[in-house]
Write a protein that binds this DNA or RNA. Structure first.
Length: 228
DNA sequence: GCGACAG
DNA sequence: ATCTTGTCGC
């Protein structure tokens, strides 16, 4: 059985109120155990959207070989899709299936990278932040596009980044993870700072746009991946 | 009222 | 996210 279902079947109005409340519980400072394993999380859909497929990939962290990291475990969890995609309420659609995938894991990571926003969200509770609270693990959000916040143009060089702002508050960073490619949006979720988030993301960056954890989870969650 | 809008 | 082939470029 997964987490108390009542939290996941809320009307948009209530879901939004819950997000604001939960956001106050986020820890915005570093509280990480020594990192030996990093997980990547992403969600995909099948059957025209009727089935939600959560994928979690656990990689062994080894500074000697990074950004090449070995896969220690891969898990896929399928569940009936419970609600449609509503901008700002993504976590209510994706987290239930993700929690099921984590329950199947035999190796728990000390750090989790999620495909989506951390606190770079209207109410500061993107999917990465929400998942971090549920798992009580440090999480980082790595999104392929912007949901919320303003920013200046980002440099062209790989590694260049510029702050993502919500007024005067810094809620994330726009990172040029690969030259000549659209930048990614990095924002801390839970138990980690933006600075530390950027350090980890860059350390897991190969020559690709996405860091290894989410790149592999992306592939595993995608319908194009013919595995089963 | 008019846009914007993670996956 | 997903529906979908080939094709341009490093």
């Amino acid at each position: 059985m997964s987490a108390s279902l009542h939290e996941w079947n809320l009307a948009p109005r209530e879901a939004m109120a819950l997000q604001s409340q939960l956001a106050t519980q986020l820890e915005m400072s570093d509280r990480l155990a020594p990192v030996t394993h990093i997980a990547g999380v992403d969600i995909g859909f099948e059957d025209g959207g009727e089935t939600t497929r959560a994928a979690v990939v656990v990689l062994k962290w080894d500074p000697a070989t990074a950004p090449e990291l070995s896969v220690v475990e891969q898990v896929v969890n399928r569940e009936p899709t419970r609600m449609p995609y509503i901008p700002g309420l993504l976590s209510f659609r994706e987290i239930p299936a993700a929690l099921g995938a984590f329950e199947k894991l035999s190796v728990l990571p000390e750090l989790v990278m999620v495909d989506g926003q951390g606190i770079a969200h209207p109410r500061r509770l993107g999917v990465a932040a929400h998942l971090g609270l549920w798992l009580d693990l440090p999480t980082i959000g790595i999104a392929k596009s912007r949901l919320y916040g303003k920013h200046a143009e980002v440099g062209e060089q790989r590694g260049d980044w510029t702050p993502l702002y919500a007024g005067k508050e810094t809620i994330g960073a726009v990172l040029r993870s690969r030259a000549k490619v659209k930048p990614v949006f990095v924002s801390p979720g839970h138990r980690i700072t933006l600075e530390t988030s950027l350090t980890w993301v860059m350390q897991c960056l190969g020559r690709t746009k996405l860091p290894e954890p989410t790149r592999l989870a992306d592939r595993l969650a995608s319908r194009r991946d013919q595995r089963k």
